[in-house]
Design a protein around this nucleic acid. Sequence first.
DNA 1: GTGCTGGAAGAACAA
DNA 2: AGTTGTTCTTCCAGC
Length: 874
Amino acid sequence: MKSAEEDAFSYAPNVSMSLPFSMGNPCLPSQYHGLPSSPIISVTSCHQAAYGMLEDTGVSGYYLSPGHRPNGAPALESPRIEITAYSQFPEDEAEESRAPMTKRLNSVVTLTLPSADGYRDPSCLSPASSLSSRSCHSEASSYESGFSYNYDNSPQNSPWQSPCVSPKGSSSLASCTLGGGSPRHSPSGSPRAGSPCGGAKRKYSFSGGPYGQTSRSPRRSATPSPQGSPLLSATDDTWAPDTNQYTNSAIVAAINALSTDGVGDLAEGVPLKARKTTLEPSPGVSLKVEPGGDDLNLEETQDDFHGPRGPFKKENYGGSFLDVPQYPYSWPKPKPYISPSLPALDWQLPSCSGPYSLQIEVQPKSHHRAHYETEGSRGAVKALSEGHPVVQLYGYMESEPLTLQLFIGTADDRLLRPHAFYQVHRITGKTVSTASHEVLQSNTKVLEIPLLPENNMRALIDCAGILKLRNSDIELRKGETDIGRKNTRVRMVFRVHINQANGRTVSLQVASNPIECSQRSAQELPLIEKQSADSYPATGGKKMLLTGHNFQPDSKVVFVEKGQDGHHLWETEAKVDKDSLKPTSMVVEIPPYRNQRISSPVQVNFYVCNGKRKRSQYQRFTYLSPNVPIIKTEPNDDYEPKGVTALGVPSAKSYYEGLNAMVHPDPNPCLVGGYPPCQQRLGGGIPLSSSSNPTLHDLTPTTYPKCLQDPPGRAAVAQGGSPDHSPLALLPPQVGSPHGYHPPSLFPAGSPSSSSPSPASHPPTPGATQDPQFTAAYSPPQPQPGSNLTRKTPPTLLSDDSTSPTLPITVKQEPQDLDQMYLDDGEPPDPISTFTHIQHTMIPQITDTAGVRVMFIARFFVTAKSPQKLNHNK
DNA sequence: GTGCTGGAAGAACAA
DNA sequence: AGTTGTTCTTCCAGC
């Protein structure tokens, strides 16, 4: 077997792959959403043109618009790897979507099925809400601002949501309600109580779906379905609006939900029992229908409430900076608006654009024990030191309040996307000063928090907890490719959508540092929060300070270099200064690199190990060539917001961050457009780029706004970009993805760790997406049509040290991806067997130990995804 | 009584 | 197939 370490690395390769679009230019057009443009068109064009291939690659999910999801599943879901390509034409099904809500619902219900999707979202939502959530429901209903509703469509309100939500919601509902075996059925689902499902040892009772929960867990029983219903209702509501106005996106979504989730599909992917459940009279349905508070909310939402994005009533907020909005915070009604398609939650968005920059001023703690539906809330996520995370939007000078969205995203090496096993959980109470409310977007619970000018567009996130959904529930969902076991890291993802005068909407996103949500991990696994150095000459010898948690006297620091094929190229233990070792800090001596003659930066990883299965996540480290100027060798600078650092946020880039960086290497995409880098403009307060995923999605197909050349002028920002900046242009489409699919891998392929984002690679790449060189380097070997899967590494990449800064075509291997999830343990899941999808393997053809060159061949496998999840279905 | 926590038992998995 | 160590979920208890 592989050693734990090996396993851990194994996924590295995946990383690259997973990141379809490398780019990440923050300034990419995609952030701009032309409201006017028809969503459908935009979306379609975007996806097809730019992202069409993604599906094939399995990555597709990430970029697919909800409507395009192959599965019909909400875009969110798909982020994972899905091989199936669906040729759906929204238009075709548009009519269906138009069907009256009721009808749709019915349909959905009828379809029942088992949409895999259903499992996730619905369950998530409902469950979450249901339980802990009471929060969701109760809150929603109880708290003015708290109720969950779907946005109508005012752009500001969260137009996109409706589309996404509705569809999903519907589907989800269906699934949930129907039976889906929604995760939430927790009660039933719980192994103990449930009946066996799908051969899994655990029993999953789908009956009742989420709602069924009511009965199951004692605790829950206490707080029965009603809560669950809310969510559903919310969903319904969502639909309602759509019904009236079918936005393109909504339609698409609906279509997806209906068509995709259609019985046929579902049936296949879902365990019989699950299906059966669906069929059973679902409480869920009733719930939906229930007029309960939820419904009311829904109605209100539609009729009375305005999306959060709508102008807030300042009066309500008195606040001073960070002051908590006055309680009852009223959410303005949404303006009637046809939602343009806003970016799906799995879309990668920049953290800054033009004058705007969304930053996490105070990062959340690295550990937060999530609560199950069967448990009570475990409180809001706290900050590293004290208090809670703080998010601020810079560059926004308008007087109109905005809405900050928060959802729980993944923290693996792949593109940021909603986490299938975790949902944000709204926290209310005396200790919560920030108003918030929940909405469902594509089956993902999204917390909306007001961003008020009075508070300098700064928000204290003390209202967000994290709900854990049962792995079995989620994994049973059709289309779900991720496994929950050991997939316990998440990131808080914040988004803000800024309407421009020209009708476009600028969407920004920033993700927090990874948060370990399991009980055990938080207690035992070592965690590196900061490292005093990100790079150093190959000679090593320098002392590096590591700060974090759970460092023990016997802790070891291991540096590892892995090839793209996952093999260990080099591994060595660094010397730890035992005398200075503390639970939260330690000093290690950077070991000399195996090859002192490297000509280009070499990306490696290191981790702290407290024993078998107790390893920290990988941290990136770059060995520099003595001959190479240390320019930009340090990735951190590139993607780590100075501001953050200043704030006390750990400067060390975590492995994840690195990943992000990879995705979004260029912090200053704007430069291309003549815009000063956001950082510069901001004065270094830029959020971790890592968080922000670079991949931008331009909803407006034809126009690609780019970074405005104008200085921070907002107007400029709003303006469309030059064609040149079209996403394609900006992104290295070719890189690996023939079809417009942009692999995230901007990193040096060579680096063993290429799989993991390598700082080294980043440094050079920053901003680079647009960088001609970059582009050139990546210009892909032309993809062969049809062979999406086959990506070839650009020649350039091939040459030079594996670590060559330029390139990496990283292909992700599924298994490896999984590994990422397990960074802590270092034990990779069993990938292959378990997962399916497309495997992309980079195989080093030629390796010059001298560190010179490594040729890689990309090998792609498409494995049929087995409907069964390894873990549970076994 | 409601939340929020920490801890831990026992089932489910994995090696 | 049995054993052992992990991880996941659910429960409990205390504040």
